[in-house]
Design a protein around this nucleic acid. Sequence first.
DNA 1: TCGCAAACTTAACCTGTGTGAATGTCTGGT
DNA 2: ACCAGACATTCACACAGGTTAAGTTTGCGA
Lengths: 251, 251
Amino acid sequence: MTFNQILNRLLTPRERMNWEASLARNAREYPKGTDLVREGERPAALRVVLSGWVQKYKQLPDGRRQILALVLPGQPCDLDLFTVVRTDHSISAIRRVTVAEIGRQEATALIEQCPNLAMVLGWSEIVAAAVQREWTINIGQRSAIERVAQLMCEIFARQRGVPAAGGGECDFLLTQWQLAEATGLTQVHVNRTVQELRRRCAVELRNLRLHIPDFAQLARLAAFNPAYLHLGEADLVAERVGPLFGRIDRS
Amino acid sequence: MTFNQILNRLLTPRERMNWEASLARNAREYPKGTDLVREGERPAALRVVLSGWVQKYKQLPDGRRQILALVLPGQPCDLDLFTVVRTDHSISAIRRVTVAEIGRQEATALIEQCPNLAMVLGWSEIVAAAVQREWTINIGQRSAIERVAQLMCEIFARQRGVPAAGGGECDFLLTQWQLAEATGLTQVHVNRTVQELRRRCAVELRNLRLHIPDFAQLARLAAFNPAYLHLGEADLVAERVGPLFGRIDRS
DNA sequence: TCGCAAACTTAACCTGTGTGAATGTCTGGT
DNA sequence: ACCAGACATTCACACAGGTTAAGTTTGCGA
């Protein structure tokens, strides 16, 4: 269940129109590598990725860098605009991206006009937190090959869902260097690892496309358990998230 | 700024009374090692740690375990009760703990009666997410000695704040084995690392107490930057978190 | 106060992953 | 069709941290 499908399901037609209009009105393009947000800044906009991929990352003083999360098309980067005074991480474009940047005033008005929107945005944060936890165990406990395989499973599942059988293909906009920064490995070792995965016929990877011939096999290798993506729970978002973030209003 | 200080500041006296009464009414004790929540369960209560420490963790099928987060006294474990259908991680008592377990009905009523409470709880989730990000870069990029030092800085700062100068002492309820599970190292290597920190006079650690003679020195060694704890931002919680999670009502 | 389990320490050895550097190969822009 | 820069690949070597297996100390419950 993608973020867009959740929006479709939970927003009223009018709410959805307002949201879409706001996104379109505030869409901007950036070349790859552009920093959208820098650590320590005061968040000034609600950002939603419309095309391309965006990374959240942190750096140590000596330059070591860790990618914390990937934001795929359709997803909001974060809700820091509404919550945080100084951002604790940076956000940048992995490749050329289109991002909607909705300013504070408009974003606040939008949420007030669309009672269900806060709820859906809240849900996206909940899933993002679960993904962050999975990345923690990924980096902390899995071996190199498991880490890379796990990340590939996640990226596939977030775009295509978990296939009932067999496999498929999806976008994979990371260079091996970025894959290394996301998994806590070095670029050289990621290369070894990707080749090992190729040798085992677990994945094909070229031209920014990832092909997984047998998803179940890769998932086994990675000890991938898709539960943390909460893909099947969106139907229940309404009754659950409602009390905290907002209220359903289908009038 | 501890969670309790935020509560003091943002709740009305009546709200605070309701909250405290609810905590007291639902307090329960558990011996160390008790699982409070198991991965895959439906969350049934809002849990707040009253004394002792609690860990959130995930396990791989073969038993490898990663501690994801520590919940210290005064803090809520999570808001999964309001948001998630099936929990994606487990929660257990690190040592003997007292935990308030507020059932769904009571928790929902409480939030409806206390408009500011949702806001404060939301803030705790925001900080927890920031901590999770820091743990990710900790495990992904720092060396063993940096990881351990960083975690010690965090635990100290969450209890005592960042000392202006010099150092101090605080509780440290983790065994070296748990320290290993939290940092993605082995127990043996954690032991080596702790001794190296002792040798450098960076910390003293015994009897579940951590003594840091010179916090600035340890922070330098760990590349510790307390910004992610958002310790100084609580004053601004109200105007920020308000629009999303709730509304200030000091009537 | 004893006794046992949990926690910590030490040691010898091993391996997965990091380093640094050179070379090869795409690919998108013009 | 070509070129420049970005990516991927390969190699030789180093070392941080893992593994296994004993000890030794500590602290708590009976």
